[in-house]
Each structure stands twice: as structure tokens, then as C-alpha cells.
Simulated scan of single mutants.
Amino acid sequence: MCGPTVSLCLLLWMVVMRVSRTQGQVAALTAPHAEVGRPVLIGCNLTMQTGETVKQVRWLDRHKRLLLAYLPTVPVRVSHQAPGVQLTASHSDGSHITITTVRPEDEGCYRCVFDVYPRGPLEGTTCIRVNGRVHMEGNQTAVSGKPATLSCRYNLPEKVQQVLWRKTAEQGDTTTVASFTKHGSHKTEEQYRGRVSLSRTLGDTRLTIQEVRTEDEACYTCEFHTYPDGTRRDRACLSVYVLPKPEVSHVTSSPGVGEANCTARSRPAAEITWNVGGDNRTLGPPTASAYEQGDGTTVVTSTLLFHPALLSDVSVQCVVHHPGLEKPLTVSVNTNN
């Protein structure tokens, strides 16, 4: 039977432990939560009477299988060690072990047994609850009009009761996009129907936008509603690019002065430069203007003034740079060159 409960904080590997007394002799340091794929530390402290000696320490799992056995000599003599278990600390009145990579099946209670001479074995019990970990792919960029998929994983799918996706716009407004439950119920909110689909899976969920729009730029949260561990979530943001489609034109604005204009509408704003083959017959550097549109795009126009004879001698090119392009777009003003 367990005696009264006391509290203890053990700062080791950044694990917060709770302490429970067993038989008034062994304080078992209980790690209530352990994360799949990460290490967890468990331990026991022993209270001995004068003249007593620990002859051996044993650790057993929830199936009463031996995990670790050693003699607390200097140096320690290990007689049995299961894979994935390490002796982290051993002293005259305590023992701490580490399960190096937690698995779902590691959930349960573990026994620490101190073989004490002359009294006999004294033991404590420490229990682990295993939690899953959510992993979402990082921030993504999509091109307007193209599909985009956001993926999210939870490595304890058997505990998931529902998967739910939420969208948080730049202004801070949050809306529910779609959900799927363990019992097969699937729901997509009305404003997203017809262009957003959600995979009917629990452990590996994928939200696909068939044709991305600028208003889809937002941060998306995947939520795994689990039992009994509650809600686990992660978030990533989607940026939407509108690629530029440059247009060029040229006129003679006044006698002896030619004017070339290059315009590109995009998201984010494009950068426009000019390539005039190294010729110096331009009339000063180009000038640029930018105008934000209501749909989130920006129209950039660059104007180049030059001597009209320039077009008959060299190629004059508008060069448009944009982060969504693998290489800049080049459009010639004088298409015959």
C-alpha cells in the first residue's frame, strides 16, 4: 500500500517529476508524461536504517520483465541491461534510469526493487503516460491558381478522436476549415466547399486547396483531439504568390525622346530592371512607381527614357525579378532585335 504523497522537483534533463511514497521506504519519482521518440527519466530514492546495505538494484517493466539489474559497487557492476535502457545515476540511496526512445507500448508502471540486507527487498512504483508528438511541415509558398497541400502528423493515431483544421487570417480572425472524426464523419465548412479537401485519416492528415487564391494566405492550425491526452496542435503559414506577366510598350514622348514602359502585376511586388546592352544612350536612370491593388497584388511600372535611334541599334529588354520565379522574365521592347 502507498503512504502519504509528498512533492519533489528534480531538475534533470528538464523533466519535472512528482514523488509518491511506497511502504514508507522508497520514494518513486513519477514522470506522468513522456513523449514518443524522446527520452524519459524515471527514478527511486531509498530510505534505509542504520546498518543496512543495498546488495542489488533491479528495474522491472509493467509486464514484470527485467530491464536492468546491477550491483551498486564502485564502479557499478551491471548484470543485466535491456536494449534502450540506460543507468543514468546510482548512489547509496537512489537509482535513476533513462528509457532512451519512448514508444507507445512503454506506457505503464515500472518497479524499482532494492535488495536490502538484512531486511530484504524494498520496492517502489513509478508510472509513465505516453503522449504523442505533432509535426507539421514548415511554412509553405503556393502560386495563385495552383494546388497547395498542408500536411500534419501525430504519432499516436490510435488515441485520436478527431482531426480539425483552422485558418487564422492576417487580421487575426480564426475560422474552422474542415474536420474528420474517428467514426468517419467528415465536414468541410460551407465557404470552403468545392475547392478544399481533407484526407480521411487520423494520424497523417492533409488539407488540400485545389486552386489557391490570395485570400488563402494565412496561418493554418491542425488539431488532434485525443483521448485521454486532450488536444495536440501545430501551426504553419501559407504564403500566396501571384506571378508577374510583364507587358512592355514604347512611344516617342517628345522630339528626340523615346519612352519605354514595363508593367508587371504580382504578389509580392516585382522588381524591374533594364538591359540595354551596355549602351549609354539612355536619358538618365529609369523611374518606377508601384500601386497596391485591392486583391493584395501590386502593379509596378518602370519607365526608361532614351534616344529613339537606340532601338534600331541594340536590344532593349525589360527584366522582371520575382521570388516565385526560378529565373527572371525578359521581354524585349524592340521585338525585331
Rank of each mutant, 00 (worst) to 15 (best):
M1D: 13
G3I: 08
V6R: 14
V6Q: 14
L11E: 11
M14G: 10
V16R: 11
G24V: 10
V26C: 02
A28Y: 04
P32L: 12
H33K: 13
V36G: 04
G37N: 03
R38V: 00
P39G: 04
P39N: 03
L41E: 00
L41Y: 01
G43I: 05
C44M: 06
G51S: 08
K55E: 10
Q56G: 00
V57Y: 01
R62W: 07
R65I: 00
L66D: 05
L66H: 07
L66K: 14
L68T: 02
A69D: 09
P72M: 07
T73H: 02
V74N: 13
G84N: 07
L87A: 02
S90Y: 02
H91C: 01
G94N: 05
G94K: 06
H96C: 02
I97N: 05
T98M: 14
T98Q: 14
I99A: 01
T100C: 05
V102Y: 07
P104V: 05
E105P: 01
C109E: 14
Y110I: 04
V113K: 02
D115A: 02
V116Y: 00
N131V: 12
V134F: 05
H135K: 08
M136Y: 04
M136E: 11
T141E: 12
S151P: 02
K159L: 13
Q162G: 01
Q162C: 05
K167T: 11
E170S: 12
G172T: 08
D173Y: 07
S179I: 00
F180H: 07
K187I: 00
R193Q: 15
R195Q: 11
L198I: 06
L198H: 07
L198N: 06
S199Q: 09
G203I: 08
D204E: 14
R206C: 06
T208N: 06
I209L: 13
R213I: 01
T221E: 05
E223L: 14
F224H: 11
H225P: 00
H225F: 08
R232C: 00
R233L: 12
D234M: 01
R235A: 07
A236L: 10
L238G: 03
S239D: 12
V240W: 05
K245R: 14
V248G: 10
S249R: 15
S254D: 06
C262V: 13
S266I: 09
A269W: 03
A270T: 13
I272F: 10
I272T: 11
T273L: 10
D279I: 00
N280S: 10
R281F: 07
T282Y: 02
L283Y: 10
L283I: 04
L283V: 02
G284V: 12
P285R: 13
P285I: 00
T287N: 05
T287V: 11
S289A: 11
Y291H: 13
E292S: 14
Q293H: 11
G294E: 08
G294K: 06
D295K: 10
V300I: 05
V300F: 01
T301R: 14
T303V: 09
L304N: 09
F306L: 07
H307D: 15
A309C: 00
A309D: 13
L310W: 08
L310A: 12
V314F: 09
V316D: 05
V316I: 14
H322I: 13
P323G: 11
G324I: 07
T330Y: 01
V331Y: 03
V333W: 09
N334C: 04
N337Q: 14
